[in-house]
């Protein structure tokens, strides 16, 4: 009798836990369906034929001085349609191969501030590509770029004058 009651108790516990599991799964399912449904309503659908993707290379030319830190603001605009930043990539020199610091809020916007530094001794001089910014632009529009130097420093941490410019490229 005790064994039967014990089995009955275990059966009730198993049934109870099944109810709990199903409840939690159902709630999570409803929640994920709600979350999955929201972007459809909140984010405009991108017509793939109406946009194209390109990238902008950012160059810093520090002349004969070493480049230990840099900070640049990039603004991308197009006369027709909206330009969106969709990704940030590092540069070519080992000192700046890692992606620069940026505000994640800049993604899906047209403006970003990029900055990086290197405390090592292997620093670039002259003209070097410090970052690549990937963009989504209107298919039939030519974007314009404004690049503004905010700060640059040499290996001693002293502020230096450098020139910056952006060059657009198309993915191969």
């Amino acid at each position: 009798m005790n064994g039967k009651a014990h089995r009955s108790g275990k059966g009730s516990a198993a049934a109870a836990w099944k109810v709990v599991s199903l409840t939690v799964l159902a709630l999570l399912g409803v929640r994920s369906l709600t979350v999955a449904a929201l972007p459809v309503a909140a984010v405009p659908v991108v017509d793939e034929s109406a946009v194209r993707f390109c990238f902008v290379d950012l160059y810093v030319d520090s002349g004969s001085q070493t480049l230990a830190a840099w900070q640049v603001e990039l603004v991308a605009t197009a006369e027709a349609g909206e330009v969106k930043i969709v990704g940030i990539e590092g540069g070519e020199h080992p000192a700046y191969r890692q992606p620069a610091y940026y505000d994640p809020a800049a993604l899906t916007h047209h403006r970003v501030i990029l900055a990086a530094f290197c405390t090592g001794t292997d620093l670039p001089t002259g003209k070097t590509r410090v970052a690549r910014v990937h963009l989504q632009v209107p298919a039939d529009a030519q974007p314009h770029y404004e690049v503004k130097l905010e700060a640059a420093a040499d290996r001693d941490g002293q502020r230096i004058d450098v020139t910056v410019h952006a060059t657009q490229g198309e993915p191969s």
């Binding site: 830190a69 840099w70 900070q71 610091y101 900055a115 530094f117 420093a153 941490g157």
Partner: peptide
């Protein structure tokens, strides 16, 4: 700016 980060990193 980034120069402050550089100085602090050093």
């Amino acid at each position: 700016d980034i120069l402050d980060a550089l100085m602090l990193a050093r």
